[in-house]
Amino acid sequence: MQRQITTALAAILLLSSGCMQLDGAVHNARHCSILGPEHCEDESDEFSKLCTPCDEAYTWDISPPWPSNFLENTDLDRLRTPANVTQHTIKTEDGEGELDLYVIPSHGEHTQTSNITILLQHGNYAGIEHYIPRVLILHELGFEVIIWDYRGYGKSLPDTTPNPDQFMADARQIRDLADTLKNPPNKLVIYGMSLGALPSVEMALHNPPCAMVLETPFTSFAEITKTNTATSLGSGFLSQGDYENDQKIKEYTNPLLVFHASEDNLFPEPSVRKVYDNAGSTEKRFRIIEGAHHGVSDGVPETAGFTTYSDMLMFTLMPACQ
């Protein structure tokens, strides 16, 4: 009997040394190499159309179907088209990836914002093409914008998504690189949308910006598990534990702005507020956008309206990054 028990315990220990992790399950990328009619002409949602194959350049001259009141209180008919966009291919430090990155210069007409560069980490669905409307908003506000695709997203290589170590290493590399790519005197703001909050917080801890903006941010596996499965299972059970943003952000002390969409179907207010509350920043603001959803078509700026979104952004960024 003792031998049987010993054998059983040994078997448990052996099985418990398994190496499966589910961190990779967070990604919802669309690589340019897999795009077909179902992503473009057959896609009914204009904001979700993905039509740019790998060998064609993105079209920045677009006019998305904004919500009807989006441009209220402005004299704009449409948002201006960025000019002189430069594309960069960044070899990753491990030599296994090539990241597609764009620098969208400021149009220079707003002196308050033209000396600020926003390093934008997009959300989880698709790639840069899906987030061009957001780039247009930030560009219209006068910022210089840098946006990049994670491995497996858009035109970045390889066509497979990164593991947590690669994801975080790429974030640190891009953060440092941004200092050399931006307009030299500019201050840098890190802006993370949804999943983009993961690389954003990593960047901010690695090389602090003048301010960080998190929009409907990824909270943590532990929070997601709790709110979706009614269990209290810790984050370390099925992941490496690198994606616990609500814990990591404790080390961040510079100014912070967090946007929460009241209709966010992925990250509820208590979870997002935990990210905000845990941040080590003394200058921080939490903004709830009533009626906003998670995403780019009816998300935070689209629902708040161009002017209100602009005011909220400036309120935090102006004192912090001038």
């Binding site: 589910l22 399950a25 967070v26 919802n28 669905y125 949804s194």
Partner: peptide
């Protein structure tokens, strides 16, 4: 944004593996 699938696997396994 079509993002509602992205942590499905993690969370379903979390629950299924336990109770």
């Amino acid at each position: 944004m079509k993002s509602n699938q992205y942590v499905t696997l993690l969370a379903l396994c979390t629950t299924s593996l336990l109770t």
